[in-house]
Design a protein around this nucleic acid. Structure first.
Lengths: 136, 136
DNA sequence: CTTAGCTATTGCATTTTGCAAGTGCAAATA
DNA sequence: TATTTGCACTTGCAAAATGCAATAGCTAAG
């Protein structure tokens, strides 16, 4: 990890994922079942290839994502969440809730509605699902 | 707001505060009682003046912070949270919790310990306190 | 042997950030 | 009245990050 700006946990968190792209990759893994470079590349936000490589590298170095050779296709890698990565679920959920609440053009879909109805239940349920997929 | 990358609420949120500084300013207002340019400038992370001006402008434009002339000193401005800004409390708390959990050198202080013990209670209590300070 | 799919890497223009110095203005002080 | 101080910016410039298009290796399939 590059130099920390301070000991504040919020600042430390932002040192790791305080940019416009990292949490979108986490979202893709966490909520959309995406696992590979090419799947991330095809997300609607259109991340550039060099940024994607860079962020995957940082997230792997920070032990948020784990990278392994695909058992199906040996020339492919799959990325999955570590426990540390899965622990970002509440951050993602809260950002989702805030974004949906304060943006007219961000309609709540299934998950958004569930969150509005019973946020703790959603977090509990999803974190148990993630537990099954956690690597290393 | 500049062009949205997508309709995803997470992406929309990151379009607004997806950088290394915005949420630290929010933290200062929300948890440390800071209200002015010079107080933000003195935070331990040492934000540069041009970045600070820029972020305060964005946060005000996004209706997250409200800027008013200080009733005490007329040549001074005070910044306070709007409801939209105060709604970021859960995001801040979750980032704090994650940062403290996964960083050896980010010791939990008072608030961190309370969060570990009973997160919903902390959010409830703080959001009621913030309610009193909300502007516009 | 060729082709297609996938994960990068490279080069270059643009934008954002970081840092240091300076400006403008109102209130406080002499 | 003249001077200083505090506060909120602004500017200039170097460095770093981002966006974009093109290309390169590598593996497996045909």
């Amino acid at each position: 990890m590059e130099n920390k700006r301070s000991d504040c946990p919020i600042s430390c968190s932002l040192d790791v994922f305080g940019d416009k792209w990292s949490l979108l990759i986490i979202r893709d893994v966490m909520l959309r079942g995406k696992m590979s470079y090419s799947e991330f590349l095809n997300s609607e936000e259109k991340i550039a290839t060099n940024i994607l490589v860079n962020r995957l590298g940082v997230l792997e170095a920070e032990n948020i994502l784990s990278k392994q050779v695909s058992p199906v296709n040996k020339s492919k890698y799959i990325y999955s969440l570590t426990q540390k990565g899965a622990d970002l679920l509440p951050v993602i959920i809260e950002m989702m809730d805030w974004g949906a609440k304060h943006n007219a053009n961000c309609p709540r879909r299934e998950l958004g509605k569930k969150i509005k109805k019973d946020k703790p239940a959603v977090i509990k349920e999803l974190s148990q699902e993630l537990k099954k997929q956690i690597q290393k």
